[in-house]
Design a binder for these strands. Structure first.
Lengths: 201, 201
DNA sequence: TTGCCTGTTGGACGATTGTATAACAAGTGA
DNA sequence: TCACTTGTTATACAATCGTCCAACAGGCAA
């Protein structure tokens, strides 16, 4: 008879991915202070040493988790965009509205963001990662706004305004879920977009 | 000759206050992960045991620091309001604009907020504290909006919108200080306020 | 002066932290 | 079948964590 193998050997990328997902789950369940190397490794079903083997440090794992969660959000936004059809204005509204619905408006995601933010000020490389990710989000917003016919010289400011509104609504939606709803958030954001275009006209 | 006293006895409130300020400084300097009982006590110039004596747990100290920092922000906002004179619209704009200038738009303050946010989801009492503080901010905003003549049935939604915009701008202003300026933030917020009133007319 | 109250200290405590490293096992190619 | 590579484990390590508590000392009342 063959005994159970002592461990499962996995593809490096698959292992990395499973560690990232375990990190996200632990962050969501226990918060930043509970996300230790050992707890994350236990969640992933591997030994603690693997975290160091693949990521070097726990901060690097958190940064990778942020990047992967950000990519997941991007994918959800892209899907909302694809479902919106071709009307530029509808696409813009779909892009914004998706931020207030699952899977993006998920209080569990907040833990990953907060854990990442807590590293931004102390570590320059992580600050750069945030700048890049934030700039990417604004660039997509600018493209959507341009497609709606917003003049070029207003793009930058409008993108900053909308991303700030979305961030703020999303944040409070996660922190105080009972205060207002995702539907209300969508209505508020839609109203601001309306105002944006009626002012530029 | 008299030797240096072994320690300074302080009023309980004064000691509590100095520990809170030390906690805020450590959070700003080292981030949430570096804010331990010992480091905070060292910063305050007292022994580590005092933190437990006055606050019971480190989480309670962070919550108290958040409350005190929030009070400081409220005071800065009140001062901006007092300096704005009596015109309702000027008062509203002063209230909003102050969030993007020192001492509120201070990246060091962000550390306190992030540390507090990281506790919100895990602890119900801290979630309640957040709800209360956030509701208070919105109530002040609603009062300012009402003074400007905004109809009652629009107050709630407008206050949520403006507070979200301010929060989002403030957050990115602290996270990516090089991306846009406080003056730009003020202009964006002012534009949204304009839009709010021209739409309701 | 004496005695009491209490803010304060300093160290002990076990648990947990992140990281480093040697031994092990599972495949792969020769 | 036999190395050989490499993903993986287990353990060791010093450092630090939060909490607790007995002892000390400053100030006040008697």
């Amino acid at each position: 008879m063959s005994s159970k193998p002592a461990f499962n050997r996995a593809e490096p990328d698959a292992r990395r991915h499973s560690l990232i997902e375990a990190c996200a789950r632990v962050l969501a369940r226990e918060g930043a202070s509970g996300a230790s190397v050992r707890v994350i490794a236990l969640e992933a079903g591997v030994s603690a040493g693997l975290v160091g083997h693949y990521f070097g440090s726990i901060d690097a794992l958190v940064a990778a988790t942020y990047a992967q969660t950000g990519a997941k959000v991007d994918a959800a936004l892209a899907e909302a965009l694809a479902a919106a059809g071709s009307d530029p204005r509808a696409r813009l509204e779909a892009f914004v509205t998706a931020s207030f619905m699952p899977p993006i408006a998920d209080p569990q995601l907040l833990a990953t963001w907060v854990a990442f933010w807590s590293l931004v000020r102390a570590r320059a490389d992580i600050a750069r990662q945030h700048d890049t990710q934030y700039a990417g989000f604004r660039a997509r917003l600018e493209a959507l706004l341009a497609a709606c016919g917003l003049p070029d010289d207003q793009l930058r400011r409008a993108a900053i305004a909308i991303s700030a509104l979305v961030d703020g609504l999303w944040l409070e939606l996660c922190l105080s879920p009972g205060c207002f709803t995702g539907a209300e958030s969508s209505a508020i954001a839609a109203a601001q977009i309306d105002a944006l275009f009626s002012a530029s006209r």
